[in-house]
Simulated scan of single mutants.
Amino acid sequence: MDWRVFLTVFVSVFIAELGDKTQLATMLFASDKEVSKWTVFLASASALVVAAAIGVLAGSVVSQYISEKALSMIAGIGFILIGGWVLIFR
């Protein structure tokens, strides 16, 4: 296992997920006193694993048709556009 890649992906995804709607929804479900916290944790963790698996599969398929450099450029431009949108319209 490439620990450098592992840590880079872990930190990036962890920071991106902090305080997002997924975490807020999980907190909402966990706040119900009658619901098992383990059930909420396992369901939330499973959903994130499945979503990540879809991302990995999609990335594998897309990378067969578009170069890594082009994908990086598209992702970078996309993040810049989203950031600009948020700054202008929020």
Rank of each mutant, 00 (worst) to 15 (best):
S44D: 07
S44C: 14
S44R: 13
S44E: 07
A45M: 15
A45E: 15
A45H: 10
S46D: 00
S46P: 04
S46C: 06
S46H: 06
S46E: 00
A47G: 05
A47W: 06
A47C: 10
A47Y: 05
L48R: 15
L48V: 14
L48N: 07
L48I: 15
V49G: 02
V49A: 01
V49M: 06
V49S: 03
V50Y: 05
V50T: 01
V50C: 04
A51T: 14
A52K: 11
A52R: 11
A52Q: 08
A53V: 07
A53S: 13
I54M: 11
I54H: 06
G55T: 08
G55C: 14
G55S: 13
G55V: 12
V56C: 12
L57C: 10
L57Y: 10
A58G: 10
S60E: 06
S60G: 05
V61F: 12
V61D: 00
V62F: 11
V62M: 11
S63E: 05
S63H: 06
Q64G: 08
Y65M: 04
Y65D: 01
Y65W: 08
I66E: 03
S67W: 11
S67C: 05
E68V: 13
K69I: 12
K69Q: 07
K69C: 04
K69Y: 11
A70E: 13
A70S: 09
A70D: 11
A70F: 12
A70C: 11
A70G: 03
L71M: 09
S72H: 08
M73K: 09
I74T: 01
I74L: 10
I74Y: 10
A75Y: 11
G76P: 01
G76I: 02
I77Y: 10
G78V: 07
G78W: 08
G78D: 08
F79T: 03
F79C: 09
I80S: 00
I80C: 01
I80A: 01
I80N: 00
I80H: 00
I80E: 00
I80L: 04
L81C: 11
L81T: 05
I82H: 03
I82N: 00
I82M: 07
G83N: 06
G83K: 09
G83Q: 07
G84V: 08
G84E: 06
G84R: 12
W85S: 04
W85P: 01
W85H: 09
W85K: 12
W85A: 06
V86W: 03
L87V: 01
L87P: 00
L87D: 01
I88G: 05
I88Q: 08
I88D: 01
